[in-house]
Amino acid sequence: MYNGGKIIVGIAIFVGLFVFPIFYNMGKPSAMPEPKLDTPVINQLDEKRCVESADYMRANHMQLLDEWRDSVLRDGNFVYESSNGKKYVMSLQNTCMHCHSNKKEFCDSCHTYANVKPYCWSCHLESKEKAL
């Protein structure tokens, strides 16, 4: 093979880099996250239901928040009427985080697992109630 040595070294480096992530993550704990709902506000609720069903929220909370943001900020509509007729003020800080005051155990547990880094928190504040 012409320049065989160089080619083989090149292929080896390429393969090494390519499979690096697999080996890098090997042996790391990958237990399914269990977002905790154990907050004072949620515990006091009669019906433990988010603004929509848990299934819907699990799959769509990011789209929902996206729509909430545009609705509040751009269209001036502040109230969300849920599919079950209940009304909520659309606010990440004042509505979502009011119940989910445990950002670390709730939001972060999944986000860290899925390695997504939403930039919500570079502006929005975590609930102060987390100290409770």
């Binding site: 929509e52 819907y56 799959a59 769509n60 789209q63 729509e67 609705s71 269209d75 001036g76 509509n77 502040f78 109230v79 969300y80 009427e81 849920s82 599919s83 009304k87 003020v89 659309m90």
Partner: peptide
């Protein structure tokens, strides 16, 4: 799929009544 999900929610947005 997005439409179905939206339809599922049957939600709407309103202005704040006290505004």
């Amino acid at each position: 799929v997005e439409e179905i999900l939206k339809g599922n929610a049957e939600a709407s947005v309103l202005p704040s009544p006290a505004a």
